Amino acid sequence: MSRSFAGKVVLITGASRGIGRAVALAFAAEGARLVLAARSAEGLTEVEQEVLTLGAEALSVPTDVSAPEEVAALVGSAVRRFGRVDVLVNNAGIGKVGEVADGSFAEDLRLTQSASLFGMISVTQQVLPVLRRQGSGAIVTMSSVMGRKAFARFGSYAIVMHAVSAFSDALRQEVAADGIRVSVIHPALTATDLLRDADVAEMPPPFRHMTPLSPDAVAKAVVTAVRRGQRRVVLPRRANTLLLAEALSPRLGDLVATALTKRRIAALLGMSSGKTYHETISVPST
């Protein structure tokens, strides 16, 4: 088994479940030492035990990334324990569903910005001095396909994911001379708890019959992106059809987004090939 990250220190936010948990286990399998951060102390304990079972070291630090003092404590704990940070995976975040006209839209946007954007900025700013002193490192930001093309009823999330994409592009150029690489990941709908509380009828229309990615598939892409220094990763590759259409013309992008609401067309594009999101997350995880 490849252990190309043996001894490397990987700090992961939002590590207690979903993509964060999968990323932690993927890096643990590669021999990395893990710093696990999330609000749920109980969830972190469970993931830490899984990491230890794989033979990797782990430090769990319950952290609300929207609280600057907790972020500072997180990075301080990581450096005191391991002396360095080699990879930062900014994964913590939330998402809200609703139309722009909804009375809750502005508050949904504020909450999403706090967790998914400003929290990520706070963690990155705390880790950057460590990486610069080392003269090396990698930063991964988790955006979304929604960070390149917005869908109806997911505007607040898309606004923040666009901001994450822009932040990542700017950061990549700013730190290149310091030996620090930046990768932004754009997964399509993934089988996490992000939209668990949304009824099927409330989902963004293209998502209602889409087959979600597995967290393990996204985690594998994250590890590969860090290993190869990939600047931008879109998952699945077929989603590039939508993004290419959007880049050529907003009209074409809207046409593809509308086409994805038709199950037959989504199936032809390979985006609907099995269980839907709600069918997938209703199955207890093992």
Rank of each mutant, 00 (worst) to 15 (best):
S4A: 13
A6E: 15
L11D: 07
A15Q: 04
G18L: 02
G20D: 06
A24E: 09
A28G: 15
A29T: 13
V35E: 02
A37D: 10
A37N: 11
R39C: 02
A41H: 05
A41E: 14
A41Y: 05
E42H: 06
T45P: 01
E48M: 15
T53Q: 14
G55A: 10
G55E: 11
A58Y: 04
A58T: 08
A67R: 14
E69T: 12
E70K: 12
S77W: 04
A78R: 07
R81V: 12
F82N: 12
G83H: 11
R84C: 09
V87A: 09
V89H: 03
N90Q: 06
A92P: 02
G95K: 00
G98R: 01
R110S: 14
T112G: 08
T112W: 08
F118G: 01
M120G: 09
M120C: 11
T124M: 10
V130W: 03
V130R: 03
Q134P: 10
Q134S: 14
G137V: 14
A138D: 13
A138V: 11
V140Y: 09
M142A: 02
M142H: 02
S143E: 12
K149Q: 15
A150E: 09
Y157R: 05
A158Q: 07
V160G: 04
M161L: 12
H162C: 04
F167Y: 13
L171D: 08
E174A: 13
V184I: 11
T190E: 04
T192P: 06
T192S: 08
A198P: 01
A198S: 11
V200Y: 00
A201V: 14
A201P: 04
E202C: 05
E202M: 12
E202Q: 15
R208S: 03
P212A: 07
V218Q: 08
V218E: 09
K220Q: 15
R227T: 04
R228F: 00
N240T: 13
N240R: 15
L242K: 00
L242W: 00
L244N: 00
A245D: 04
A247D: 06
P250E: 02
D254C: 11
V256C: 05
A257W: 11
T258K: 14
A266R: 09
L269Q: 03
L269R: 03
G270S: 09
M271Y: 12
Y277E: 02
V283A: 09
V283N: 00
